[in-house]
Write a protein that binds this DNA or RNA. Structure first.
Lengths: 216, 216
DNA sequence: CATAAATATTAGGCTAAACGAAAGGTTGTA
DNA sequence: TACAACCTTTCGTTTAGCCTAATATTTATG
């Protein structure tokens, strides 16, 4: 499979955990290609048995497609761990290189790398590394935007998006931090939360769809 | 530049240190393509200023081509060190993966990797890692086949060729071993050498063009 | 030193993997 | 029910490789 196809597949896989419907348009935006190109690629991926997609209908990964995608995500996230832990890349900078390395890794390499890194459970953004945990998946996380007021949650994962990560860094929040959701601002959909040290913080409406939490 | 072009360039660069003339045919053998494909690629590389090559004439890297090739070799060899030292790949198995990773590495990544590996001087085959030493190059090595009888030499480098490495392993020789050249067999061009422990060993005619040594 | 063998180049054509523009279907919502 | 938004099909383009066959040049040999 070509690197490009792998990227399409990974994009579709990751959209599954973003709580948004997977559409042709969404893919074309993320991949920066025209809609016809997406349709063409979907047909190609469908003909190879990675997904099902009847015209104008839902896009669903087959078990085979899911398995392959999981391996791609696993590979990607293991490289992210390497880049962050060993090569000392800042979290908001690992994505690009991990993407490149991902397409240059065969199965054996990934196993060796996994051993070397000592079977990490999560990538630097908090994403589960498929295969290293016991059945846990990203799907267990909830979006911060969906949490009702006055609820205590722990940040477990954030989206691997450069611009968001820049913003996230400026908030002085870290993965694993525990926060309490205080109030959803009706006016602009921003969210006020309280940090462990008692300080209050407002998180923008867009960002709360990029932060995943678990109840605490 | 495409990965393929990079491979051509690297091949040409490495032939410089093999004491054989760089010919179209040699390249086509190494790269497993037809001769016309080589000519085509040489023209393309020449038009981009990486080498000079008038028809039926010598192939010579320009300073620009040399610089790029050196970086490619540096990258390749650093990955080889990583695969061997960190991921525990056997020496005869690092090449394939290093090649893939090489094309997925940007400048920053290589610098970080170099730091992480603590600026190694040589790759697992003994090849110099350009940029990490002080002016030393592979060109200082001599081919074992060129050494006169009754000379003591140290193996400093071997060619990064899978089949050869298998054979080399079976000889129970290691890089850095010191051996004494005893006799060039006129009949079949094989070479008899004496190991440090006094045992004698015959090395085939083909292999002595894959082993590089320094006088001791 | 002439000619055969080896090697290199040119010419022409092929394939695969993308991409997009234009035009026409489909669907959901007002 | 109509139209806007979205999706698909068709067809054509580009890029980067590769190849065979024919031709040209160099090198090696009798």
């Amino acid at each position: 499979m070509s690197p490009n196809k792998e990227n399409y597949l990974k994009t579709i896989y990751e959209l599954n955990y973003d709580f948004t419907k997977i559409t042709n348009k969404r893919i074309s935006e993320i991949m920066n290609v025209s809609a016809p190109s997406v349709t063409e690629m979907l047909n190609s991926l469908a003909s190879e048995g990675y997904l099902t997609h009847s015209p104008y209908n839902k896009i669903v990964l087959t078990p085979k497609g899911n398995k392959v995608s999981e391996k791609l995500v696993r590979t990607h996230r293991l490289w992210e761990v390497f880049l962050h832990e060993c090569l000392k890349y800042p979290v908001d900078n690992v994505h690009h290189n991990a993407d490149a390395l991902e397409h240059a890794s065969d199965d054996g390499l990934i196993d060796h790398l996994n051993d070397f890194l000592d079977h990490p459970q999560r990538c630097p953004h908090g994403g589960i590394i498929p295969g290293n945990g016991q059945g846990e998946t990203d799907a267990d996380d909830k979006l911060l935007s969906m949490i009702p007021d006055n609820t205590k949650v722990q940040i477990v994962r954030v989206s691997d998006n450069y611009d968001f990560l820049q913003y996230f860094g400026s908030l002085n929040l870290e993965i694993d931090d525990t926060i309490t959701v205080l109030k959803h601002e009706k006016f602009d959909n921003s969210l006020v939360v309280e940090k462990k040290d008692g300080s209050k913080l407002t998180i923008g409406a867009k960002a709360i769809d990029y932060i995943f939490v678990e109840l605490r």
